[in-house]
Structure formats: structure tokens, C-alpha cells
Write a protein that binds this DNA or RNA. Structure first.
Lengths: 192, 192
DNA sequence: ACCTGAACACCGTTCAAGT
DNA sequence: ACCTGAACACCGTTCAAGT
């Protein structure tokens, strides 16, 4: 076999990749998901082409930036799946998902747009998230606390929509928990 | 007094303004609220500076584009306010508001962003809309069909958030009515 | 193998020069 | 009074040239 070993990168390449990610985290935090890639390359003191070599699309960069948070959320879903209180577990997960989607301005939009786009590097992460939510949802439905006519995609969309509200109008941030409560009440089984 | 009469415009000015609006309607329909202003000027066969003279900001152009629809919605709210069925009137108005906010891609976002920005030309229209919704809301609350812990801004935010969902992920369009129903159920008075 | 920056085709916005 | 387009300062993306 040839001596190729994909995990071996040249030292400068590896260093550049990490510089870019570190800088990008800060810039995206300041400017949101539409931050200037040129600006990121500049602040990372790296050629513009270098940024493109490591992250061929903006979404690829975002994906690298967000993967850690996604993994953490997936882990939380796993843990909450063990809980003896399915409804409370679902509520807690959604609360954390909404908080996470509010981490960067524009993130909720990226998440939603990715639903339709299977090519997006973020697609896998979103799928994982929706499946995780779906499992918690089914448990809560089996328990009878949540209506049957809802699926994981509905839930994911509503959670992102709530994040989006404070994304667009930060002045409504104080209402976020309240609006979340309203939506959750809509999801509970109607009294028959 | 001086002979100034602001309603008199030079014929070419008036014609240009209308050309721009007509073209902008089409382009914004195609490309959403972030459409290229240059492109609009080009297609209207008008100098770029002319567009800026008539509409100093993108929001000013949007406002002119949307005013008609806003007025129509305000009229609907007025008419529905006469209805003998406050709850049904509110639901119908929200349904039309959500449909209207889905007219152009990005419109829901403009509406939400305008809540915090009093300088925006769209601010007056949004205020009018929220007041209209607020009056219908209060009637439905007085009737006891809607919870008391909601105000017009909450309602406006939720309606825009629902529009935004299909804005971002058109594939979820078929779920829109369903999600609207869920949210409405959350707004109804909980059984005590 | 990787980095670099010039080059290209776009933007939004302003403003001196024209009629 | 109004129109025009060049000028400026930005973008994202690609790619020939370097090491």
C-alpha cells in the first residue's frame, strides 16, 4: 500500500486550520453566520485561499464551528432519554436546543434552511438533532402527555422559530420563555 | 406664501418612481427582500442614483411596495372587529397576516427586525398591524377564549415566526396550517 | 502539499457633473 | 428639479504562481 495517511497534515496546515477556527468563532459570535469570510481570513493572518482550502463553503466552516455544540446536545438527548419523566425530559431538551440555536445570530436560519438541502454539511447534524428530538417526543407521546399529530420535524421547526424571534428582535428576549410555554401548551394533549 | 406644492412632481420623476416600483415588485417577488437594488434600477432602465433619490433606503422601497397590502390588512382587521365571533375573527386575521408575511421571502424578518427599530419606515405599518391584532386579541380574551397572559406583540411575533418557517424551508409549507393550529391551541384558555 | 494574493464579477452608497 | 454613471469601499470565489 501507498504511504498515504490522511490524518497526517503538514504542521503549518494544521496550525492554520486551528487559527481560522479560533478566529471564526469570535467573528461569527460578533457578526452572526453571515460574517465576512475575508474578514476572518484577515484576522487569522491567513491568505484568503487558505480559508477556502480548509473550508470550501461557508457552511463547512459553520459545521466545524458547531460540531462540538451539536455533539453535546446529542449527548444530552441520550441522557435525557433515560429519564423516568419523558415529558419533562422533552421540555428540557427543547429548552437547551432553543438556547443553542440562539448562540449565533442567523444560526436558526441555517438550521432550517438545511432541512431541504441534503448537500449541506450541516444536514447530518440537523438530522441527528431531529432524530434525537423525535425519540424524546415519542416517549412523551406514549406517556400521553403530547398530542399524536406532531413529529420531530414540527418540533424542530417550532424550536428554531422561537430562537429566530429573539434573533431578529432582541428586545423580545424577555418573552422567550413565555412564548416557549405557550407553544408547549399547544403541544400537550387536549383534554378530551 | 411661496408657490411650493409638494404634490407636483415633474412628469419624468413621477414616471420613474412608478417604473421602479413596478419592477421592484417583480424582482422582490423573485429574489426576496434582499434583492439587488442595482438589478432593480437596471431592469427599470433608470440610473442607480435615481432609485436612491426616490427611495433612500431599502426599507423605504419595501415600505412603498408593501403599503397597499398593509392597508388592506388593516381594513380587514377593522371589518373583523365588527364580527360577532371574536375568536373566529382573530383566527381569521392571523391566518391572513401569516399569508401576507409569506408574500415575499424575507418579509417576516423585516417585520420582526422593525419592532426594535423606530427609525424604520416600516415601523408605522408594523405598529398599526400590532394594534389591529391587539384589538382583536382583547375581544377574544374578554370572551374568555384566549389566555390573558398574551399581548399583541407576542401574537405578532408568533405569526411572523410561522411565516418564517416556510420562508426558510418551503418543504414545510404543507405543515403550516397544522403548526398554526398547534400554536392557536396553546393560546386558548387552559381548562381550569 | 500547501499557501498566497491578484483577478473577476458582483454589491451598496455617494456625489460631481450634466440637463 | 431631477437624472446619470463613475468612483469608492466592500463582498465571495477562483486559480496561476510560488514554496
Amino acid at each position: 500500500m501507498t504511504g498515504e495517511s490522511p490524518k497526517e497534515q503538514r504542521a503549518d496546515a494544521r496550525r492554520n486550520r486551528e487559527r481560522i477556527l479560533a478566529v471564526a468563532r469570535g467573528v461569527v459570535h460578533e457578526q452572526g453566520t453571515e460574517a465576512s469570510l475575508r474578514d476572518i481570513a484577515r484576522r487569522a493572518e491567513v491568505g484568503l485561499g487558505t480559508l477556502y482550502r480548509h473550508f470550501p463553503t461557508r457552511e463547512a466552516l459553520l459545521e466545524a464551528l458547531l460540531r462540538q455544540g451539536f455533539d453535546r446536545l446529542a449527548g444530552r438527548a441520550e441522557a435525557l432519554g433515560e429519564s423516568g419523566e419523558p415529558y419533562e425530559a422533552l421540555v428540557e431538551f427543547l429548552r437547551e436546543l432553543i438556547g443553542g440555536a440562539g448562540a449565533y445570530r442567523g444560526l436558526a436560519g441555517s438550521m432550517m434552511a438545511t432541512i431541504s438541502d441534503e448537500q449541506s454539511p450541516l444536514h447530518a447534524s440537523c438530522m441527528a438533532m431531529r432524530s434525537a428530538a423525535g425519540r424524546l417526543l415519542e416517549r412523551a407521546q406514549a406517556e400521553g402527555r403530547i398530542r399524536e399529530d406532531i413529529d420531530g420535524t414540527d418540533l424542530f421547526a417550532l424550536a428554531n422559530a422561537l430562537s429566530w424571534i429573539t434573533d431578529q428582535a432582541p428586545s423580545l428576549g424577555s418573552r422567550r420563555d413565555h412564548l416557549f410555554g405557550l407553544v408547549m401548551d399547544g403541544l400537550t394533549r387536549d383534554p378530551e
